[in-house]
């Protein structure tokens, strides 16, 4: 196990797992508490269109995916607020549009898309130094935003209208948060893939919410659970030679089940 740490690719993967856990633990707590998991799913799948466009134009798909992700986040909000389309319908439309565009662009791109599978299923062992930098900068930014605006964010998430009557800049803070959510999703696509990215933003948080009903503690616990899941998933993926994204998610579900069952036992015997 020690010799693993002498491989540069493995150390890079560990650092990525750490930064991803901090970012997803934080942002996921907000997503789960505010019940906007489905919006996250919409952003994830819409950004697939961006990945396709990136291939077609021959530029880094992460950049085009980020643009698609943010535009879809704003688009979903605008469609439901201003155009009188029900939010879940708007999400469904963006979701489908993004997938369709992604398929069209990839089909139009001459030749075979070599690491398309990386985007669908993710591969934490393939992340570049550049990706690590991006995730770290976003992680620090998100942490700073939550640290300095914690009370405002907490209040908006609970009761947006009341926060507005208190003069909180609800619109601005909402846009900042939805942008951070979109970027978090896009940067994590490389780590666990489009299909699994939402689970990183929901399973550790749901596990944490079994243990605590306090928002601050929920964030800290989610981060810790995410770190345990991703580290153990990473080692399992190495030793059993299975894809890292899937094994990370598998570990997080196992932790969820363990916590849920032991919590039920605890409640049963403390009666």
């Amino acid at each position: 196990m020690i010799e693993l740490l002498s491989y540069q690719f493995f150390v890079k993967a560990l650092i990525t797992a750490l930064m991803t856990s901090v970012l997803c633990g934080l942002i996921g707590s907000y997503i789960v508490s505010r019940r906007i998991v489905f919006i996250g799913g919409g952003i994830t799948h819409t950004s697939f269109g961006g990945i396709g466009l990136g291939y077609y134009l021959g530029i880094n798909p992460v950049i085009t995916a980020a643009v698609f992700g943010i535009l879809s986040a704003i688009g979903i909000k605008a469609a439901s607020d201003k155009a009188d389309i029900r939010e879940d319908s708007a999400i469904g439309i963006f979701w489908a549009l993004g997938m369709a565009l992604g398929i069209i662009f990839i089909y139009l791109t001459p030749g075979y898309a070599p690491d398309l599978m990386t985007y669908l299923f993710g591969n934490i062992l393939m992340v570049s130094i550049y990706d690590i930098w991006l995730i770290s900068v976003l992680g620090l930014t998100a942490s700073a935003v939550f640290y300095f605006l914690f009370n405002e964010i907490h209040s908006i998430a609970f009761d947006e209208e009341f926060a507005k009557t208190q003069g909180v800049k609800v619109g601005l803070i909402n846009y900042i948060l939805i942008s951070i959510i979109a970027l978090t999703i896009v940067l994590n696509i490389k780590v666990v893939g489009i299909i699994l990215v939402m689970s990183l933003l929901t399973i550790p948080q749901t596990t944490a919410s079994i243990i605590t009903k306090n928002f601050r503690n929920m964030i800290f616990l989610s981060v810790i659970i995410a770190i345990i899941s991703s580290f153990s998933g990473l080692f399992i993926s190495y030793f059993f030679n299975i894809p890292s994204g899937a094994s990370i998610i598998f570990c997080s579900v196992i932790i969820f089940l363990l916590v849920k069952i032991s919590n039920s036992f605890f409640l049963f015997f403390s009666k």
Partner: peptide, 24 residues
């Protein structure tokens, strides 16, 4: 009100003071 939202009684009451609180 969202019965599952993680906010305590005290945090709820405090949120009524956001208008006078300094940002950050």
């Amino acid at each position: 009100a969202d019965k599952k939202f993680p906010i305590s009684v005290k945090e709820t009451v405090l949120s009524g003071l956001l208008s006078g609180k300094k940002l950050f």
